[in-house]
Design a binder for these strands. Sequence first.
DNA 1: CTTCCATTACGAAAACCTTCGTATTAGGTT
DNA 2: AACCTAATACGAAGGTTTTCGTAATGGAAG
Lengths: 128, 128
Amino acid sequence: MSKEPPRPTQSELEILAVLWDAGSATVREVQQALDARRPTGYTTALKLLQIMTEKGLVRRDERERAHRYAPKVPREKTEQQMVGDLLDRAFGGSASRLVMRALSSRQATPEELERIRTLLDEIEGEKR
Amino acid sequence: MSKEPPRPTQSELEILAVLWDAGSATVREVQQALDARRPTGYTTALKLLQIMTEKGLVRRDERERAHRYAPKVPREKTEQQMVGDLLDRAFGGSASRLVMRALSSRQATPEELERIRTLLDEIEGEKR
DNA sequence: CTTCCATTACGAAAACCTTCGTATTAGGTT
DNA sequence: AACCTAATACGAAGGTTTTCGTAATGGAAG
């Protein structure tokens, strides 16, 4: 019975995003991705990945000299948890209020808006 | 020159949500609101509010015996920061992907969906 | 085999978050 | 004034997060 892994922290979430995109990555690759956003040392990235391994957030492949890390928690579920948390904590559960803030915090491209519209169509389509 | 207040923590964000809704509140009122979500002691709520006062997140009115706390940071800006953070950290800045997760993490009501649609109309309306 | 270098392992420091016990204070009541 | 109650103030414990220095290790090259 392996326990449910805990929620990722802010930094851990950034790493998961990298791994979800890449499929898997070495410490060096993760470190470079993080460093591009904000100065991040190599051992810092390594330590985070080690902790995330203990927590069960990622899986480590030690066959190669440079270990490869892969996400162990599903992207969809984790992203939903994160959004759901924020939704409850700050928006009283109102998805439309959160969406409003999301759209005003970045100017979304027309393509983005169109994609959202399609999404709404699909959701309403399922209802009938 | 008073510095920009730091980002609220998770617990602090919950308190801000209470204060934004209420306008202002005493420690007791905040504590009861928090306690409804999750067991929260009185001195815990008090301490958090004191820390938030130091950070400049809330303003304290000491004229009455029971001090009244009011939000000092604007709701709109803070919510945008929170959503923006999550957007960058986990969604690569893609608002539509975040919206998708928001809508699938709660089943939004038809009213919610309609409100979002109207929101999209407004945004696209401004473009021309 | 020895050397060298990139990588992993380990530990610890520093900051922060959350909670709570205890002391102090203010105001009203008798 | 003395007392009771509810509120604030204070500090500290316990946990977590993030960062980094330093040591150990493995593999490749000479």
